[in-house]
Write a protein that binds this DNA or RNA. Structure first.
Lengths: 252, 252
DNA sequence: GTGTTTATCGTCAAGCAGACGACTATGATC
DNA sequence: GATCATAGTCGTCTGCTTGACGATAAACAC
């Protein structure tokens, strides 16, 4: 259909971020408390308007830096420095998803290591890392006994989609290393998989699998004992981004 | 960041469609010829503006029907009737992707069986099925010796992303059946895989794999001989949407 | 009938995954 | 310092899946 560029319905375009990390053996997402209506006082995903001269990925990277101080990676580059992995997730555009106006939100997924200085936003009361299970259970009670209100807007759906993307993507890519610091052990990587998938994995088979996949892990030569027990070799993420064959989630 | 809903940059939002089918053993995409600037006379992906009261998926389904006469499926439902599979692909929002104004395009991917009545748009000169290889090779020559100009806007990138999505998705899902008519043979399904991946597959191993995956194929009892040779059993798509274990592309 | 084409069944070896035993190297505890 | 608990690392075995490929079956063309 030939279209008339001068007569189009006006939209606002935002980016929303699903920022995931692994803390205390649990998959956690960054949530911010809304200070104004609609959904005032409720938790929501961080996000904001795309600026007039800004690409979508740029806008997402900017929001990520504003909220967490992390800098974003190119999604096609191997995970090497201390930046976070950032990729587009999906776009949500139900006409009624924002009661004020027509807003189309391009959601992005960010994977970050557990931050040494967890300063989400700076204001401890307005942002927090929350286990995704807690954010997604509707009507349940949070860790503090606080009534867990559902996330604002359609953010529960967005978060669920982001979590599912992360869960499936670590199957066939080396993205799980994005949850780890620059140097990490096989055990730490395994605990990432266990937290993201919510299962227990056999340490011996996991070790065989990840060390046997060429390009996945590169030994740095060092060892660490920060987990207790026998010292473990330290690794960096290798250049491989795709795991072949993939590491499939256990059934059921 | 708290945002002010009354002060936002205005965007136009469109949907663009990557409609794929398999014709004559080749993966083909629907292309339309642009009748007006910019990129007048060049080939482009079908698409159009999202209306003010329309969801993104609705807009994509409407465009698909307008361009092909196909009706769209729910992406989570098994492929059963004569509709096409439709899912969101990705969103493209570079500030300069449309020279006229700021346009954010939510690309969708549609997979359709080879249409008995290929009436793309109705105007034979303004729409056609073209092999994706031809649409993506820049500066080459098409089948008619016609200079193959690159697709308009960033549509070559969108098409490439859609093709890659289709290629990877038939690995671990039953989506390849979306390219087949309601009843099909194992050989027809194999030719779909061969066309989409651009490889040759062993008929015996393929047969073993697809008939051995529970829920993938349901025999209808009938047979056909439309491909020549020994009559083949007819199947319908089963209820399974995820193949476990997946059918991985051959390496290299 | 002979040849051609496609479908379908079977066989075999290589590779990989899950279950699990065994040993090692550290810190904690008595 | 001996013992224990913890975590890491190396092997073994078994069953399943895959890739390569032989063999047979059922249609059509001549």
């Amino acid at each position: 259909m030939p279209y008339d560029p001068s007569a189009f319905p006006p939209f606002a375009v935002t980016v929303d971020l699903v920022v995931l990390t692994v803390r205390r053996h649990a998959l956690c997402a960054l949530a911010v408390r809304r200070g104004e209506p609609p959904f005032q006082g409720r938790w929501a995903l961080p996000g904001g308007f795309v600026r007039a001269d800004e690409d979508l990925a740029q806008a997402a990277a900017r929001e990520l830096t504003e909220e967490t101080g992390l800098c974003a990676h190119d999604p096609n580059a191997p995970v090497q420095d201390n930046g976070a992995h950032l990729e587009q997730l999906a776009t949500y555009g139900d006409p009624k998803r924002d009661p004020r106006m027509r807003v189309v939100s391009v959601a992005h997924l960010a994977l970050a290591p557990d931050l040494p200085a967890p300063r989400p936003g700076g204001d401890a009361n307005s942002a927090r890392w929350a286990p995704v299970e807690e954010l997604l259970q509707q009507g349940g009670y949070g860790r503090d006994g606080e009534q867990a209100a559902p996330l604002a807007f359609d953010h529960a759906q967005i978060l669920a989609d982001g979590v599912e993307r992360a869960r499936s993507k670590i199957e066939y890519s080396s993205l799980a290393t994005a949850f780890c610091p620059a140097e990490f052990t096989v055990g730490e990587l395994r605990r990432v998989y266990e937290a993201v998938w919510g299962v227990a994995l056999d340490p011996r088979n996991f070790h065989r699998k990840v060390t046997g996949t060429p390009g996945f892990l590169v030994p740095t030569g060092g060892t660490t004992t920060r987990q207790g027990g026998r010292p473990a070799q330290l690794f960096r993420a290798g250049g491989a981004t795709l795991l072949n064959p993939p590491m499939l989630r256990p059934e059921v």
